[in-house]
Write a protein that binds this DNA or RNA. Structure first.
Lengths: 204, 204
DNA sequence: ATTTGTGAACAGTTTCACAGCG
DNA sequence: CGCTGTGAAACTGTTCACAAAT
């Protein structure tokens, strides 16, 4: 609960997803091993770090385990506000996405430096010119940003976002972002992902 | 070159991107620290693992460094074939994407279990029903897959892909995939990314 | 003088092995 | 008796500090 290592946190978040789709009241670490690519040992250790004791000789109680992970991951604190920065091809496709429906994350604003776009496009939340980014993020206390601008604007936007109090950036650009430690970045660009796969699977 | 730890490999791949946009013949580890979020020490260590000596008292020779990383990451081995599995909203948006233009990755096939889609949609490469997945992947020796199917099909497709010889999956679904160690997975789903950010930035 | 390159110390993670519990 | 839960061991990765290089 207090000081869980970051690799464990990441796995626990994925475990939450896995469990939320699992049909059954009980699950063993062995069964989780089968459904994921983690070892039973790592799973037991991760769960033990939560500090709850929801396991027994027949496995973990799924409901209690889910509850514990959600609490530890800071889900369950109500909706978490997100914004989209950059309304090009990828950004537009996210405007209409239902991927966050029913989750703890909520899109509350979109930004683009091209005022045409912010005026023409429509979404369930307001679209602003990028000049208002810092103001809106601060006022609305938005904590997460989805960065879908062009490579040339990426670093500059990332800096603005950190300054405005954003704690997490989902980076759809293939750029390496330089941000202070108070801001976390997840790189999800297709090209970055493919290159990473290529590098780690090189069996030289 | 031989046995580079995987975190170093991932950073080197990102460094390659950073350097390829850098204007200048020389760059110091201090400068890279500024442009990224890594320490100068970690950067020097990563580079030293490449086994080349392209640095001097005034910094690294950018061109030589780029060359060395590309070689080590297995880029430079000619085009790497990729396929898209799932032609729903995300898959379709990738069909028209220019993100891989000019890179070492090349889309050579698309798959969907809905034959309507494979017939109606158009791309610069052939679209097949998912029943042909294993056959086409094997024959064309496709090594990377972009998984954009629905959550309910994800695990089943991932298993087929591993069987067919795929070594890397870019996973756009929020599912945890169970694959053998011969297949690497990069999770790039928006929801997974946001949950990960939420978990790691919890300052409990 | 400044920066690389690197062994060695340190820190963080994973694995192991088994005591304890239902 | 099988499975969790967990210290301790083994391993992996990062930081440090300084010798070598130009």
């Amino acid at each position: 609960m207090d000081k869980i290592p970051s690799p464990s946190k990441k796995r626990l978040v994925l475990l939450e997803r896995l469990l939320s789709e699992y049909k059954g009241n009980l699950i063993t670490s062995k069964k989780i091993e089968e459904l994921s690519s983690w070892s039973a040992a790592v799973i037991r250790k991760d769960i033990s770090l939560l500090g709850v004791h929801c396991g027994a000789s027949n496995g973990y109680k799924v409901a209690e385990l889910l509850q514990a992970i959600r609490k530890s991951a800071g889900l369950e604190k109500g909706k978490r506000k997100c914004c989209i920065v950059g309304l090009g091809r990828i950004g537009q496709s996210l405007l209409g996405s239902t991927e966050l429906d029913g989750t703890d994350f909520e899109l509350v604003a979109g930004f683009d430096s091209n005022v045409n776009r912010t005026e023409i496009l429509h979404a369930d939340f307001p679209l602003h010119p990028t000049t208002l980014l810092e103001k809106v993020v601060r006022e609305e206390e938005i904590k997460f940003a989805i960065l879908t601008v062009s490579a040339s604007e990426a670093q500059q936007c990332a800096a603005k976002l950190s300054d405005a109090g954003i704690i997490g950036i989902v980076n759809y650009t293939p750029c390496v972002l330089s941000v202070p430690p108070s801001t976390a970045v997840e790189n999800v660009s297709l090209l970055t992902a493919l290159e990473t796969l290529s590098a780690v699977s090189e069996q030289v």
